[in-house]
Every structure is written in structure tokens, then in C-alpha cells.
Amino acid sequence: MTRTILCFFSLLMASCIAMSAEQRSKNPDSGPSKWTMNEQGFSLELVQVNADYARAVFFARGLPTDVVEEISRYCMFGTIVKNRTKSPVSYRLPEWRVRTGGGVEHKFKLKSEWIKEWSAKGVGFRWLLLADAQTFDEGDWMQGFTTIALKPGEKFDLSYSWSREGKTYNHEIKGMQCAPVKPATP
């Protein structure tokens, strides 16, 4: 667990390093893979989050067990979005799509959807997850978890978009994968 947390934070910290257009890296110790994109001043970084880590993080916030168990069943990524230009950049997570085998399309489960479910259970927590949509001015950035209803280890292609100065940009990351189930230790 300690190693997993250390490695996860190390991957997040590495985001500050200048990036080329597209990179994929994998931590040899803990295993989480990271995808990094930097296109037209829009920087996106996605780090696999396994169910154990998700469970630990949400449980540590004092959320009820059923809420924690439900969200930790989702395919989760630590997601960092940055504006690397001087002009405002916007993203809208509801427009992003995930394509699995056979061309089946999936949407992200949004922060607003989670909050609605949690509110119905009397839980007022509204942090940790990346906002559905945001506009970033120069220097702005944000990190948070994003969730997709896919199984551990499932592979997919991600189509995402962002806009700047009235123009919408699209990009695709092929061969992404949800965090696999952590193998049982002997």
C-alpha cells in the first residue's frame, strides 16, 4: 500500500516536467501506467488508479462504505488538466468518449452525477473528482479523479476535446487501459 501511494504521487509530480506531444510511461514497481498529452497548449495527464487505492482515498475522507465501494468499482484515473497558453482553454468532460472493443462507446461518469447520488444518501462531499467542465486562464490547472464504468484492466481508446479562442480541438489516445486488479500477494 505504501509503495502504491508513493508511486502514484511520484507519477503525479512528474507532470510538472516539460512534455512532448504524447507520452506513455509505466512505474516498474507499482505498475500504474500514465498517459501524457500536450497539444495546442492543452495538457492532459491520466494515471491509472486501482480499486485499492481508490477505496483508501475515499474511505479516508470519511465517506460511507457503500459510497466508497461503489466508486472503487469504476475504472478510475488521476487526471490533471492544464492550460499552457496565455489564452483561456475550456474542456467539457460530457463530450469526451471512450471506445472499447467492437467500437462500443462509453461516457465518463461525471462528478455532477456522483454528487447527485451522494446527496440522495445524505452525503455532502463534493471533492476529489475532476469538475465536469472548466475554463482555465493562463497558469490555471486542476487535478481530480475521473471515472468510467469499465472493468479492471479493460482496454480502450479515448477521444477528448478542448476549445480555445472559439476553435474546438479533438485528439485520440489509443490503447489506454484501466488499472488491472492487483495480484494477490502470497
Binding site: F59, A60, G62, L63, P64
Partner: peptide
């Protein structure tokens, strides 16, 4: 919810 938080002291 606060009571649950005390179970997580180690992780915290």
C-alpha cells in the same frame, strides 16, 4: 460520517 474517520488514522 465523522465516526468513520477515526478508523483511518493509519492511512491518514
Amino acid at each position: 460520517l465523522l465516526s468513520l474517520r477515526h478508523h483511518n488514522r493509519y492511512l491518514f
